[in-house]
Design a protein around this nucleic acid. Structure first.
Length: 491
RNA sequence: CGGGGUGUAGCGUAGUCCGGUCAUCGCGCCUGGUUUGGGACCAGGAGGUCGCAAGUUCGAAUCUUGCCACCCCGACCA
């Protein structure tokens, strides 16, 4: 048991915060709500980026970069969009500072007031669609499949490292299509990419669904999402893909000449995942000893801790272990050999557990003599001694097994924390006792959803895709319903 | 912005009621030695405008006033 981390079941959010800091992932900065992503945390994000970026390119998208600052007037061109974001925009009003004539420091130069204020992007639809206007004339220019990796700023009231920060890193895809069908297909394709990434790489099962009108992206016709379940029974929206209809095309006058017929507005989509995925990854698998990282995203997949009393012993360990390290690296497995003599082995064991390194190899004089290694897996903390000669294959298999095992563990948790309920009383009871996803009938109105939210803080996370049709009665109003929807308390 | 709370070394803290050898302790850091198969030990050492400013006082971490920052709960949200 770690003496250094709070326990999950005692104070989950304290555990999360401390883990993020102690595992060297991120820390708070001088500006409230903004975080410093530390090298270890950033290297996990880089892995996520690189995998997603490859998937985006494989599906025909190309990267571009649009500016951070957006003229204020752009934001108001799409009515529901501005309504959704206006309350959390940082605004640039001046372009110069000057020395404070009354003393030390600098002040904003009142003479340097901008004619039109600039908004720091909370998302880039407006600036991108104003650009798309110039890029699209003909059906030959479509589809336009653009992605950008960027930072955005949303001035949130309450922030938490990775889960909700005032500035965050993300990717935002923005596409334009000739037909509605094609745009919807794109929206669904990108949702699938997110879901596959979450499940295959993050080892985190997700529900795929659509949002209700209440939870829809400001300016979208339909918002698709992936929803994950965290270990405290709360849901986390892990990615969204929006079908924008012709809303932004109309707002920014993006028309094209089709093969046949008259000039028409294009159909749009946008989709994004953010550094919030880091929060999801941390909460999905980690335990009271620290992070548990899926091998496919772990910056260090295997750490070797030599146990030695002197330089001579270390040397004999090196000779023994070097071929294995080379062999693993040839298999594209990242290996760290930690031969620091400034920390004890016990310290290193605990430290790499805190950092979530999936596999640890310990090797000391005894092993050198017996031609063995001790390998330990982070997910189950099982240790065993194995012959050194077959270690490479065994470790390779072990990494695969860990990846699978933590996925199944998360899936099993989700299964036991997904409950069908048929009355409001039962609903409230499950919500307060075990949390998780709650499948219940709903009459389809925003009023009912709103009332339930006010009562219980639970929201409809999504209406699952391909959900089975089933006659029932709304848990609140008793009105008829044709399918269950997914409720949960959420981050 | 409402309600509650907290600011003392890199981190975590004692002391604040009742002003005066009071700047405490632990972790971490540095030096030396002994250690090293699950977060080592001993000895020595460095490190502080006690959040900021003004005031009361012979004297303020401690009392008064103002300001600032952060945390928790709510409204808002990827």
């Amino acid at each position: 048991m770690s003496k250094f981390l709070p326990k999950r079941d005692e104070d989950y959010s304290l555990w999360y915060n401390e883990l993020v800091k102690k595992a060297d992932l991120a820390e708070n900065s001088a500006v409230k709500g903004c975080m410093v992503i530390k090298p270890y945390g950033y290297s996990i994000w880089e892995k996520m980026q690189s995998i997603l970026d490859t998937k985006f390119k494989e599906t025909g998208h190309t990267n571009a970069y649009f500016p951070l600052l957006i003229p204020k007037s752009y934001l108001s061109k799409e009515a529901s969009h501005v309504e959704g974001f206006a309350k959390e925009c940082a605004v640039v009003t001046h372009y110069r500072l000057k020395n404070d004539p009354n003393g030390k420091g600098v002040i904003v130069d009142p003479d340097a007031k901008l004619e039109e204020e600039l908004i720091i992007r909370p998302t880039s639809e407006t600036v991108i669609w104003s650009t798309f206007k110039n890029w699209v004339q003909s059906y030959r220019d479509l589809p336009l499949l653009i992605n950008q990796w960027a930072n955005v700023v949303r001035w949130e009231m309450r922030t938490r490292l990775f889960l909700r920060t005032a500035e965050f890193l993300w990717q935002e895809g923005h596409t334009a299509h000739a037909t509605k069908e094609e745009a919807i297909k794109e929206t669904e394709t990108m949702l699938d990419i997110y879901a596959e990434f979450a499940e295959q790489y993050m080892a985190m099962p997700v529900l795929r669904g659509i949002k209700t009108a209440n939870e829809r992206f400001a300016g979208a016709e339909e918002t698709y999402c992936i929803e994950a379940l965290m270990q405290d029974g709360k849901a986390l929206q892990a990615g969204t893909s929006h079908f924008l209809g012709q809303n932004f095309a109309k707002a920014f006058e993006v028309k094209f000449a089709p093969k046949e017929g008259k000039l028409d507005y294009v159909w749009g989509t946008s989709w994004g995942v953010s550094t919030r995925l880091m929060g999801a990854l941390i909460m999905a698998h980690s335990d009271d000893e620290g992070l548990v990282l899926p091998p496919l995203l772990a910056p260090i997949q295997v750490v070797v801790v030599p146990i030695f009393k002197n330089e001579e012993q270390l040397q004999s360990i090196r000779v023994k272990i070097d071929p294995l390290i080379k062999e693993l690296r040839q298999k594209n497995i990242s290996v760290k050999f930690d031969d620091r003599d400034t920390q004890t082995p016990g310290f290193k064991f605990a430290d790499y557990e805190l950092k979530g390194v999936p596999v640890r190899i310990a090797i000391g004089p005894r092993d050198v003599e017996n031609n063995t290694l001790e390998i330990a897996r982070r997910d189950t903390k099982e240790k065993k001694s194995i012959p050194a000669d077959t270690a490479s294959g065994e470790i390779e298999a072990l990494l695969k097994d860990i990846q699978l095992n933590i996925y199944q563990k998360a899936l099993a948790y989700r299964n036991t924390h997904t409950t069908e309920v048929n009355s409001y009383e039962e609903f409230c009871n499950v919500l307060d006792t075990k949390g998780g996803f709650i499948l219940a009938h709903w009459d389809g109105t925003s009023e009912t959803e709103q009332k339930i939210k006010e009562d219980t803080k639970a929201t409809i996370r999504c209406i699952e895709l391909n959900t089975k049709q089933e006659a029932g009665k709304c848990i609140l109003t008793g009105k008829p319903s044709t399918q269950r929807v997914v409720f949960a308390r959420a981050y």
